[in-house]
């Protein structure tokens, strides 16, 4: 009887959580003027998913509302802080971002939608943070930021905010193709004691519950993301690290070649969705 009794308890405990799962049909409009594409046809390279959806659809109404107004969105505090950095001269050259790039509302519009992307001069795929660090070390004579550290994320979020509403459009062919293939392989590779790949949760089971939480498609068009959980902006690589750790595996590090490849591949799965960063999630 022992097992049956425990099963009964488990069922009762589980019962209150048995709510409807899945993505809702709400529309994301920011500041009552900027309409976002949060559901659209999957890009041609995706074989197993027909419609791609923003993680916004998987959140509660209260969490969704936080992203619908720039004032309600706590991530915008950090965009402000990123703007301060943009205007501050640093390094041996005594230059600020603004000295070369002027007003980010003009110079950075659309930029985040195309990253990660191939950089000819350095012959590598660069994430937006790598590009920021490239500017710092090559042009400003300043130290590179630690990957996904606070200031780096703030600047990334500020730059990304000027692409909001524009469709994600990363190139997966040409010189970036090899890295994209690596990223795709990582996406489908099971890791850890739980033997889970990205696809097991975010392709096979989006809309289902993982404990009391909705699984989304794991789209990264909303990064950097302000999470209610830790009340700060979170970087894509830090999220990847958390996911891989949750499979009980040794993880790659933020900024590693593996995570750059994975970011390129996962971002390409959002081709067509609007850039949302900084988004708000739980």
């Amino acid at each position: 009887m022992k097992i049956k009794a425990l099963t009964a308890v488990t069922l009762l405990l589980a019962a209150p959580m048995a709510m409807a799962g899945g993505a809702d049909d709400d529309t994301l409009v920011i500041n009552e003027e900027l309409e976002m594409v949060t559901k659209t046809a999957a890009p041609a390279h995706m074989e197993n998913v027909d419609e791609i959806m923003s993680g916004w659809h998987f959140r509660s109404d209260e969490t969704q509302a936080l992203q619908m107004d720039d004032f309600d969105n706590p991530g915008m505090i950090f965009v402000d802080q990123g703007m301060d950095v943009w205007n501050t001269a640093e390094g041996s050259e005594g230059k600020a971002c603004a000295d070369c790039h002027g007003d980010p509302a003009d110079s950075m519009a659309g930029v985040a939608a195309t990253y990660p992307k191939w950089n000819d001069a350095s012959e590598e795929v660069r994430t937006l943070q790598m590009q920021i660090n490239g500017c710092r070390t090559e042009r400003m004579g300043a130290e590179a930021y630690k990957y996904d550290a606070g200031t780096a994320i703030n600047v990334e979020a500020m730059i990304t905010s000027h692409s909001r509403g524009m469709p994600v459009n990363v190139a997966i062919d040409g010189p970036a193709e090899a890295m994209w293939e690596e990223g795709k392989e990582l996406y489908y590779t099971r890791t850890g004691q739980l033997e889970l790949s990205c696809a097991n949760c975010h392709e096979d089971n989006y809309g289902n519950y993982i404990r009391a939480d909705h699984l989304s498609q794991g789209q990264i068009n909303g990064f950097p993301t302000y999470r209610l959980k830790n009340a700060k902006l979170n970087g894509v690589h830090s999220r990847f690290k958390g996911c891989v750790r949750d499979t009980r595996a040794e993880t790659y590090s933020p900024g590693s070649a593996e995570f750059v490849a994975l970011e390129l591949y996962v971002k390409s799965r959002a081709n067509g969705l609007s850039v949302e960063g900084p988004s708000v999630r739980n």
Partner: peptide, 10 residues
Amino acid sequence: VKVTIGGCGG
């Protein structure tokens, strides 16, 4: 107010 526990530590 019911407070849910998240699925992934992140």
